[in-house]
Nucleic acid binder design. Structure first.
Length: 583
DNA sequence: GCCGTTTTCGGCCCGACTGTTTTCAGTCG
């Protein structure tokens, strides 16, 4: 089992325990463990085989260590089977109904034997739910309305889509004179690849005016809640927007609190407590001897909030309780990569295959964006739907590049190819033509459902091929639409490290592949990441910003990303002899 | 279930809002 699979088992255990009203700290222990394992650089199977002490992993104690060993050895966990006997897994979707938590869901299951969303809907329509103790007519209506939301499969939207809504909301609220500061917080600010809802924070003393203004935002379908400081609305698109209005002296504390993540905040507040301080969204406060809230020591800015706790101002992208506190205590907060650090773009298509723009148009667009070098990487012949290139057409394209090069002295145009890794495991083009290329991107397009062994055989063949520079979109996942291939990413990264190959972070907002935790593993193993646009038209080059967000979440600095280098400094990283490459 | 420069037991972040309550539990972030 992979680390992620083991992590998923612990998450499932946590869900079921929560449903059974187990000790919340026990539930948290499983969730914490799941999170730590997902981001672990070494495969657990290897650690178990080596007889390593798993309790060395932060958050893993004696009990979870034993369960990990059981999962590695047998592929299943008796405890999970037992839990599923007590509570069918079909109840878990009920927890996604807004307003339904473990307590209420358990009451529905225990009192009315409701074990699925369908049964829940029927019970609401028959008016049975309102008769339960602790439920009422209003709750029943809320549940009924919420079922539709829960049934919508995982509807977190791409960060790029959230960004459009956020900008519109900010533009709508900013002109209001009563608003002194305004920020979008939450997972949007942390740059997560998908965003579940939008969190806005306003600095104002006129709460009513700000809330009224949000209510007037075009596209507000309903007001879910509105209190003294907090308001929630749902947009026509079903997206929820939470607004919090605080005074200036609390803005920093509220921004810190509202940015999260929840796990990061739990850690921050725990650390505060050890120092006799209390952190909440209103500020940082000294605690009196009786444990009462005393004098305020910080709150106006995030920086002073963290500073008052002896912590650095964490970049929002790192606030996931995935090791940032350890980095801070070692004094090494990384200087994360920024969009402006990128100098080249090494994956793009033209109308020779499935791109929309000509070679010259792509070159011009790249120059306008200040790129110092680009690789033209059209598809190879097996990708017939895209009109992939055979060796003849590919060489013809390279001749066209030869003709263009003298016209541009401010951009290096690399002769590249996105060569398909065939189902058989061979490369789609002959070795002699691949050897002539400046830059070979290898990727899978077909046979994505093959068993892991076969997928890995293909990927490992490609990564060891002398002419291949990089593996593109290595896992093949499409966010919310397609699962990754059945592959062992850890092994792929290891072999890439052994053969001095690069791995792509495809910046398309639907791909973002490799993802943040895999990029972090690549960093630890010294595998350079290349952030590429995979542009199919000129505007497609602008997606690099999303790749940079993901890279920041992985803790990558400019030094970890190969295409932050000038072309002459990138060449030594490549398998190909620098002398065979253009200047 | 995890963890320990106050602890191997007794803690484990904190507050807003709603609905169903007569003073609070549940949910959410």
């Amino acid at each position: 089992m992979t680390n992620r699979e083991i992590s998923a088992v612990f998450d499932q255990v946590a869900d079921l325990l929560e449903f059974q009203n187990a000790n919340p700290f026990r539930v948290r222990a499983y969730r914490n463990g799941a999170r730590k394992l997902k981001d672990l650089p070494q495969p657990l199977s290897q650690l178990v085989a080596d007889g390593a002490d798993l309790t060395d992993i932060d958050g893993i104690g004696k009990d979870l260590a034993e369960k990990i060993a059981t999962l590695v050895r047998t592929g299943s966990l008796p405890m999970l089977a037992e839990l599923e006997q007590q509570v069918p897994a079909s109840v878990l979707p009920m927890l996604r109904v807004p307003g339904l938590g473990p307590k209420k869901a358990a009451a529905l299951y225990n009192e009315l034997s409701i074990a699925s969303l369908d049964m829940l809907r029927a019970a609401c329509e028959e008016g049975k739910v309102r008769e339960l103790k602790g439920f009422g007519k209003k709750t029943e209506e809320t549940i009924l309305a919420g079922i539709a939301l829960a049934e919508r499969a995982n509807d977190r939207i791409y960060w790029a889509a959230a960004d459009e809504v956020v900008q519109a909301l900010l533009d709508h609220l900013r002109p209001l004179g009563q608003v002194k500061q305004l920020e979008a917080a939450g997972s949007y600010r942390r740059g997560k690849e998908t965003v579940g809802d939008i969190d806005l924070l306003a600095d104002s003393t006129d709460v009513g005016a700000v809330m009224d203004r949000l209510g007037e935002f075009p596209g507000v379908a309903e007001v879910i809640a509105r209190g003294d400081t907090k308001m929630s609305v749902r947009l026509d698109s079903q997206l929820q927007v939470d607004l919090r209005v605080v005074p200036s002296e609390s803005f920093g504390a509220a921004l810190q609190y509202f940015t999260g993540s929840k796990e990061h905040n739990v850690e921050v507040r725990g650390l505060a407590k050890q120092q006799g301080l209390r952190v909440n969204e209103w500020g940082v406060f000294r605690l009196t001897e009786e444990g009462e809230q005393g004098e305020r020591v910080a709150g106006a800015t995030e920086e002073e909030v963290y500073q008052s706790l002896g912590l650095p101002l964490f970049p929002p992208e790192l606030r996931e309780a995935r090791g940032e506190f350890e980095l801070a205590s070692e004094g090494g907060m990384p200087d994360l990569i920024e969009l402006a650090d990128l100098r080249g773009d090494l994956h793009m298509h033209t109308n020779a295959t499935d791109g929309k723009a000509t070679l010259r148009e792509m070159v011009e667009a790249a120059r306008q964006r200040g790129r110092e070098y680009i690789a033209i990487t059209d598809h190879s012949k097996r990708v017939s739907m895209a009109g992939g290139l055979d060796s003849g057409r590919l060489r013809a394209q390279w001749e066209e590049i030869d003709r263009l090069r003298p016209e541009y002295d401010d951009i290096v145009i690399l002769k590249g190819i996105e060569c398909d890794i065939l189902e058989s495991g061979e490369m789609d083009l002959d070795d002699d033509v691949l050897a002539e290329a400046d830059w070979v991107v290898a990727s899978l397009h077909y046979g994505q459902k093959q068993p892991r062994e076969k997928i890995m055989q293909r990927l490992l063949f490609a990564v060891q091929h002398p002419s291949v520079s990089i593996i593109a979109h290595p896992t093949g996942r499409l966010i919310n639409r397609r699962e990754p291939y059945d592959l062992d990413v850890d092994q792929l990264i290891e072999v890439a490290a052994q053969h001095n190959k690069l791995l792509e972070l495809n910046a398309n907002p639907a791909r973002l592949d490799l993802d943040d935790s895999h990029c972090a593993i690549a960093k630890r193993l010294g595998v350079p990441i290349v952030i590429s646009s995979d542009a199919h038209h000129t505007e497609g080059m602008d997606v690099l910003q999303y790749g940079v967000k993901q890279a920041r979440r992985a803790g990558l600095t400019a030094a970890d990303v190969a295409n932050t280098r000038a072309w002459r400094d990138l060449k030594p990283l490549l398998a190909k002899q620098a002398a065979d490459l253009p200047d």
